[in-house]
Amino acid sequence: MTDRSQRLLDSSGPRGPKPRRRFSKNNILVYGVLFIAAVYYLLPLYVMVVTSLKGMPEIRVGNIFAPPLEITVQPWVKAWSGACTGINCDGLQRGFWNSVRILIPSVLLSIAVASVNGYVLSRWRFKGAEFFFSLLIVGAFIPYQTMLYPIVIILREIGLMGDLGGLVLVHTVFGMPILTLLFRNYFAGIPEDLHKAARIDGAGFWGIFFRIMLPMSLPIFVVAMILQVTGIWNDFLFGVVYTRPDTYPMTVQLNNIVNSVQGIKEYNVNMAATLLTGLVPLVLYFISGKLFVRGIAAGAVKG
């Protein structure tokens, strides 16, 4: 940093009143950095969108940054219902519906179980609860790779290897540590007196859970839901290990479509397929705003 620019940066205090000259050199520098960063983050999305709307001849001769001369939705149609993986040519829709069928039960089941767990750990202390809780936290950090094979054996034993049901179980189990932690910490913040008052009034274990804890914790349920929906939808590892081609979730099928070595590469179809796969978490991101940030921040440090 030169002396000159150093002085420029110092000239307005970071907490001071809004600078009057909107285009001072300092501001140009600051907005310049923000703008360049924004280009870096937006570029791939932009390129994906324009590529997916072009025809293949235009892609072969053109510039990947240029907007389409002729807009066509053909690549999207083909990606959804005609792209091939191996011998199947029914498009990404199969992966999409598989992912939906995995997502809904996994999210509901894991949140139901984890919220009760969190409730028990925060309010109905039992012997060894602390130890139990520490084990769970450590569990959250174990790399998935060390548990992959034992789970294959378990799933084979109960006959769910390769089934969507097996994957639902896997997602539920792996969602447990982080979700339980999330719910326990939230419930622990609800005043103890409420709990005591309810007990005096004769409410039991479930009565307190459904009539006091649940109504007071809607935000944390939304956070947990966001965390699980993005996590499960974006999962690739479990999908590739525990399913077979006809039960592949969307991410696995997408990778197979795009990275297949056979045939001519149809980049427009590939990009449409990629966007289709990213659409669910992206929509969730744009509609949920601040809660999304809380959800992913909570999940940032899991195994």
């Binding site: 999962d235 796969t277 978490p281 992913i296």
Partner: peptide, 16 residues
């Protein structure tokens, strides 16, 4: 703008 890529899976990121 800075956070949206985090919503996407690594597969989508990689292919883009």
């Amino acid at each position: 703008i800075y956070l949206y890529p985090y919503a996407l899976s690594y597969i989508v990121t990689g292919l883009a």
